[in-house]
Each structure stands twice: as C-alpha cells, then as structure tokens.
Amino acid sequence: MYNILLVEDDLDYGTVVKQYLEFSGFQVTWTPRAAEVNTLIIQQAFDLAILDIMLPVKDGFTLAKEIHQNHPQIPFLFLTAKNQNIDRLLGLKLGAADYISKTCDPEELKLRIDNILRYTQTKTYQTYQLGIFTFTPNLLRLEHTKKKYQLTERERDLLLLFIQHDRSILEREVILNQLWQSADYFSGRSLDVFVTRLRKYLSDDDAIQINSIRGVGFKVDLARQTPQS
C-alpha cells in the first residue's frame, strides 16, 4: 500500500481528498501545518507528498524546496487553487512531478498519482537484506513487512558503514572521522544517539546485534544476506 503525505489547510477539502484516496487504496497522512512535515517524514516512509501552495506561515513553494533538498527521494505534486501559468511554471521548476488544480476530477487526480508512482517505483536501486529488513540506501528506507522507517542521511551512512564492517570490529574513531570529520566529545555523543536510533529500528529482528565494545567501538552482526539490485 502506498503511503501519501497530504499537506492541506482547508479542513473540508482535506477531508474529501483524504477519504477519496483512502477509498482508492492509499494510506494517507494529512496535516494542515507545513511545520509538521519534516517530523512526519522522519517518522514515516512516504511514497508521495501532495502539497497545497496557499498554506499559513510557510507557503507550499517554500515547503517543496525543503522537501526536495532534505528528502530528494520523495516525489511531490502541487494540488492547488492557484491556477496562473506563472505559478504552474514555478512549481514545475521546483521539481514537482505534477501541478494539479483543485477543480480536477477526483478520478483524474488518482490517475495522475498512479502515473507518478508507477514511474518512481519502477526505478531500480541497490538494496541490502538485513535479516527481516530491506535497506534501500538511495531512498533512505529501512523496512520489513509491518514497518517502514524513513532514515536521515546520517543514519543511512552509519548503517552503510556497519554493513561494510559486518561481523567485525568497527572502531569509534573510524566512524567519527569518516562521518563527522571529528573525534571530539560532542561528535562522540552524537554518534551514540544515532547508534541508539539504529538499534531501536532494528530491534524487531533479534538476530541483528550492534554490540558496544568499551573503549574500542562496535561489533555488529546484521544477519546480512547477499546484496540485491
């Protein structure tokens, strides 16, 4: 089931769109506030974002720039009442997969969404099988049959480093110099936070272990299978 993020501050219209898309088989997370978007993306893995432009505090164009910069793996489209050609051109220049008027027929909206997802989901990316998890670095995605996690770039890079040193000892200093370019106290505390996050994500599979070796680093066993592509 595809997971869609809907950002729309019109409560009546947002309700209609959410209900129609869910009736059409999508999972929809709806928020009227642009300020919540980054947190939601970190908490969940979204296949598509649908953005209104005329949002309070932060407009949809600004939000789109942030999504494109921080989460480039998530395609987005504009669903808006702003129908002037200059707005449409700006939206497409920002990287929108489509620019759709709110007067659009619901069935047409679904078809356009289907077309976008059909294109983005057929791209081939390298994946790693870690126990019950599938890890797709390009999409910053870690998932199994019941859960999907949208990783940050730092979480992705740390997990890749663990994969490179699977079933061996990985020194803290190596991690800090490669990912933080510093081995100072504050970088070390940050590393511990990210290791804790990865342990939490991977805790659904008891075969996966990230063990700390005091004063040295980490010994990992990711129950890894052959990389796929």
Results as ranks from 00 to 15, higher is better:
Q126R: 11
P32Y: 13
L161K: 10
F218W: 11
R189G: 01
I175K: 03
A183H: 08
K58W: 04
D105K: 13
Q209L: 08
L55K: 04
T145H: 10
D114I: 05
D204P: 02
E153K: 08
T124I: 15
D87V: 06
V174M: 07
P75E: 04
Q69N: 13
L77A: 05
K93A: 14
R167V: 03
L161N: 07
N3Q: 14
D157Q: 13
V216N: 05
S168E: 13
Y2M: 04
N38V: 07
E8F: 09
R112W: 06
E173R: 12
F133W: 09
D192N: 15
E108N: 10
I74R: 00
L179Y: 04
V193N: 09
K102F: 06
Q178E: 15
T196W: 02
N38D: 06
L63M: 08
F61I: 04
F135L: 09
Q44C: 05
L51W: 03
M54P: 00
D206F: 06
A34V: 00
I213F: 06
G217Y: 09
A183G: 09
I210N: 07
S212R: 14
P32F: 12
N3M: 05
R156Y: 01
D47W: 08
A49S: 15
L55H: 02
R88E: 08
A223P: 02
C104A: 14
A97E: 12
L222N: 01
Q19Y: 07
G215D: 04
Y201S: 02
V28C: 06
R141W: 02
Y125V: 03
S187G: 06
K219Q: 12
T196P: 01
Q181P: 02
L92S: 11
K102V: 06
T134F: 05
R199E: 12
F135H: 04
A96C: 08
I116L: 06
Y149R: 08
E173I: 10
L161G: 01
E22V: 09
K219Y: 10
I113L: 07
Q209H: 05
V193R: 13
T127I: 11
E36L: 02
R199M: 08
D47C: 08
H71P: 01
Y119W: 07
E66W: 02
N177D: 12
E66Q: 15
R118K: 14
L151C: 00
F135Y: 10
S24R: 15
R156L: 02
P137I: 04
E155Q: 15
V7R: 03
T226F: 07
A97P: 01
Q209N: 11
A45H: 06
